[in-house]
Design a protein around this nucleic acid. Structure first.
Length: 423
RNA sequence: GGAGAGGUGGUAGAGUGGUCGAUUACAGCAGUCUUGAAAACUGCCGUACGGAAACGUACCGGGGGUUCGAAUCCCUCCCUCUCCGCCA
């Protein structure tokens, strides 16, 4: 969330920037400022009262020690009236703080200046296009047909044992999954990321830390008996490693990567876009998470983008990079780039990665800070990006590489699959 | 699931009603000494909010209570550890 400092220091600027995210923040911002003023005056008053009270209490202690009982008794009486007032001041403080907090949760992150204006996905800017699209005949099959033909993925079996959106990978299909995970982790490790294997179930505090709660409660699977959540992305556990932590500047940037299963309820999204592997309730993903200083986080972002681009290139997939416009960006990101690969048989671009810089928005919620060279404590910047999400990569690989003789495996992946064709 | 122990500053570990925001040790930082390092010695060494600052206030797992005064007493919730049972 935004800090009160950010809001009070540049009220009009924040309101204007928020409007680029299609968020009318005037009312919220005004409320935060006035509630904060109220909080401050209340605190000053309360602090003074408490200081007075503490002083008297101390003097009572001393008087008792010296055996001056009557004087102590007199001081004691003096104090009783003040306590009522403090109670109500405390209540006012607490209410104001809670209200501020509640409002701050509803205000999205402000977009970076490099984010283009726009209302929806239509307005995203194609930053770059790469790779070579293949020409397939009219008889080209979509991946769900190919999966059946070569017995790679069984969607019906998934329905039987769990439900829709939980496919069962078999034989070379399963092997392909494992190969991709291994490939992505190896590439990340080579690029200097530390591999993490976190829990895939988290507590509510972690959900709040990265911002899934309270906004997107309905998107996560919730184990109510234990009040735990299945993670929608490794971002949640991996970023929460740094919750309530003060890092040292020399330890930054922190570069972590993690493979996990990801679980998403995807409530309310049904229809043609969800066919096959396009949208699942459980899928595999390798995620990059970075914690950095404000003055270096955009270099980190650039490195992450280059890394992800390298992956789709090695997989020989036609791709494009989108610079998301203000209206299409997520609640918490400051700037975001999507990677899409072209799925030849479906004639569609499929999103396979989303790389974002959250600047200090997430760090503020997480209380993730660092000590700079002057020993001053500042908020970190957090970044993350998929590298990569498997299902749509698999969809594109299967579709784009289909031949009359079977499905070709990209060279870079062959050491991992240990087969070069799916027949 | 049953029984017990415990949650204090980066770590270890004191502290059971009155200069305790907290003894001490270690780690860390700065300095003295040294050719340099180590050792030894000296000083510094939590966070948040308010304040221009001096300084004030809050925080000893969370919340509530008793009291003029709580890390210390009471209630409640949470968490961790150990043993037993069950189990990969």
């Amino acid at each position: 969330m935004l800090t009160i400092k950010q809001i009070t220091e540049d009220k009009e600027g924040i309101i204007r920037k928020l409007s680029r995210k299609l968020f009318d923040g005037r009312e919220a911002i005004e409320s935060v400022i006035s509630l904060n003023d109220k909080r401050k005056t209340t605190q000053t008053k309360l602090d003074n009262n408490l200081a007075e009270l503490n002083k008297i209490s101390k003097s009572i202690g001393l008087l008792m020690k010296e055996g001056k009982k009557e004087e102590a008794e007199a001081a004691r009486l003096k104090v009783s009236g003040m306590k009522e007032e403090n109670k109500s001041l405390e209540l006012t403080m607490k209410e104001a703080e809670e209200q501020i907090q509640a409002i701050l949760y509803t205000i999205p992150n402000i977009p970076n200046d490099d984010v283009p204006d726009g209302k929806s996905a239509e307005d995203n800017i194609v930053e770059k296009t790469g790779g070579i699209k293949v020409e397939l005949g009219d008889d080209a099959l979509p991946h769900w047909e190919l999966a059946k033909k070569y017995d790679l993925i069984d969607f019906d079996l998934g329905v039987k044992i769990t439900g829709a959106g939980f496919p069962v990978y078999k034989g070379k299909g399963a092997r392909l999954q494992r190969a991709l995970i291994d490939f992505f982790l190896d590439e990340a490790t080579k690029a200097g990321y530390t591999e993490i294997m976190p829990p895939t179930v988290v507590n509510a505090a972690s959900g709040f830390g990265t911002g899934q709660l309270p906004d997107k409660e309905g998107q996560m699977y919730h184990c109510e008996v234990d009040d735990l959540y299945l993670i929608p992305t490794a971002e949640v556990p991996v970023t929460n490693i740094y919750r309530d932590v003060i890092l040292d500047k020399k330890d930054l940037p922190i570069k972590n990567c993690a493979y996990t299963e990801c679980f998403r309820r995807e409530a309310g999204s049904y229809g043609k876009d969800v066919r096959g592997l396009n949208r699942l309730h459980e899928f595999s993903k390798v995620e990059l998470v970075r914690i950095d200083t404000p003055d270096h986080s955009y270099e980190s972002l650039k490195e992450m983008l280059d890394h992800v681009e390298g992956l789709v290139q090695k997989l020989e997939l036609p791709y494009r990079i989108l610079r998301l416009c203000g209206g299409d960006m997520s609640f918490t990101s400051s700037i975001c780039f999507d990677f899409e690969v072209y799925s030849e048989a479906q004639k569609r671009w499929l999103e396979v990665s989303s790389v974002s810089n959250f600047e200090s928005y997430q760090a503020n919620r997480l209380h993730c800070r660092f000590r700079d060279e002057n020993k001053k404590i500042q908020l970190c910047h957090t970044l993350n990006g998929s590298a990569l999400a498997l299902p749509r990569i698999v969809a594109a690989l299967l579709e784009n590489n289909q031949t009359p003789d079977g499905i070709r495996i990209p060279v870079a992946l062959q050491p991992y699959t240990r087969f070069d064709m799916i027949k």
